[in-house]
Design a protein around this nucleic acid. Structure first.
Lengths: 256, 256
DNA sequence: GTAGCCGACTTGACTAGACAACTTCTGGGT
DNA sequence: ACCCAGAAGTTGTCTAGTCAAGTCGGCTAC
């Protein structure tokens, strides 16, 4: 490696590898730690540091036993007029979407949920917990809470079909555009980190909260999703879609 | 260390340290790598891995020569009805806010900027580059582009005063509420990473672009901010402000 | 045919040690 | 009072090696 003055080996190496990787398509195997170490005559830990930097940037994905593969970030759009679809989001990047339903239960609504959903004192809700996979990798976790009384038979509909929003639209008059939305970029709560296997990885996640309503304005669904920030470019839109100009600094920084 | 079955040493150690740290106030020194290694009889690199995990989570901040100190994440709120203020955001966490204006220049608008701001062929803009500091630490970088013709004398006003939004409101009839917002979780562009000293750290930052308009709907500002994701919880809210019900999974995960 | 074992290859975890770069403080000199 | 040198302590970088654990494919035994 011809390192620039003051640039650590592992950083120079990661830049070098990133360049090679940009030529490849997503899913292609990246050089292994051992191979990098041999090729550039550095220690395996140095090569490892380089690959970990690329993982932090979301350019590769690594897994024990399997190896390191090229990755591209997925674009996840959030907005009042936008009906999110896991399948479409993932398919747009040419990857394979899968959903594992972890739980469907009917239970008493918690106090805060009663307020949000406008339920009476003994209101009951259906909670739906789903794990979202992208090319077999755990990419997100989603919890949906639905008012049971307003949605007769929703449990069976949910079991049969994958798309919650299709069920909502067809059976219960769900209207996109009447939503309250909140997005947070936060450190993953412990239970989310465990479910998504985030130990030792970038643990920033995106939490999307959304309250969807019927056309009449009656709340129909309260849903939260946690998405791995290293796998997604999350785009929150308010107003019409536009392409952003890329900002450029006034004064350039000289290379260190 | 009494490690649980299957839990790596460094992870158990980081949990243990996190517990101790939660008792301390922000800014207090955390144990050093050497001290941790000695106390728990592990290698320095293992102790280091534990501290790096805490850094990923935003619970500590580390710097060569200075040491590791306890940190708390700041909440950065963005929304159509909410005018972000660096001073207020940082002060809310009891930290010291500082802004360094790196550049104020008037120049020809680029093509994409002309489209966004609705300028004519020879339109000129004022670009304002600012470095945002939190307790002396580089925490963000912000670029604002303003149409020069629509805002006579804006350069001098900006030089004199720190708050851009105050200037906009007082002199040019800026009305929050007509904003277009886009939030992304992206890898820092190279020049941003250099300005914020992000080598080897959680290098992911958040970018916010927004186009604020006058009451008449005429675009007034195009701004971009890069924030260190390890220092901020970023919250974007569309719709009226509500207190979030804290989501909880149906089935608890047993500790591994 | 197929189930299962085994070996090759991958990343993960951990240790021991060395030196470099940076920050802060202290003490001595002017 | 002030500046500078140096020591002490910190994190950063890098090497050499070992063993563990997960994945995949091929081969063998049935």
């Amino acid at each position: 490696m011809s390192t620039q003055r003051g640039t650590p080996l592992w950083l120079a190496l990661s830049d070098r590898v990133a360049e090679e990787l940009s030529q490849l398509r997503a899913g292609a195997p990246a050089p292994s730690e051992h191979e990098l170490a041999a090729r550039f005559d550095v220690n395996r830990l140095t090569a490892r540091a380089a690959l970990q930097e690329l993982e932090r940037r979301g350019q590769v994905r690594r897994r024990q036993g399997r190896g390191t593969v090229v990755a591209r970030k997925l674009e996840y759009r959030v907005g009042p007029d936008w009906v999110p679809s896991w399948t479409r989001t993932v398919a747009a990047a040419g990857a394979e979407a899968r959903t594992v339903t972890e739980d469907v239960v009917t239970r008493r609504a918690r106090d805060d949920e009663r307020v949000e959903l406008g339920l009476g004192e003994h209101g009951r809700v259906v909670q739906l917990d789903r794990l979202r996979l992208c090319d077999g990798e755990k990419a997100g976790y989603q919890t949906s809470v639905l008012p049971a009384a307003r949605m007769p038979g929703v449990r069976d509909a949910l079991r049969a079909d994958g798309s919650l929003y299709e069920v909502l639209a067809e059976h219960y008059g769900f209207a996109p555009g009447r939503a309250w939305i909140r997005v947070e970029h936060v450190t993953a709560p412990d239970w989310v980190a465990r479910r998504l296997d985030l130990r030792g990885r970038p643990s920033i996640v995106l939490m999307r909260g959304r309250l969807d309503c019927q056309r009449s304005g009656v709340p129909l669904e309260l849903t939260f999703a946690w998405l791995r920030a290293d796998m997604f470019d999350v785009v929150v839109e308010l107003g019409e879609w536009k392409r952003l100009p890329t900002p450029v600094p006034v004064r350039r920084v000289e290379a260190s």
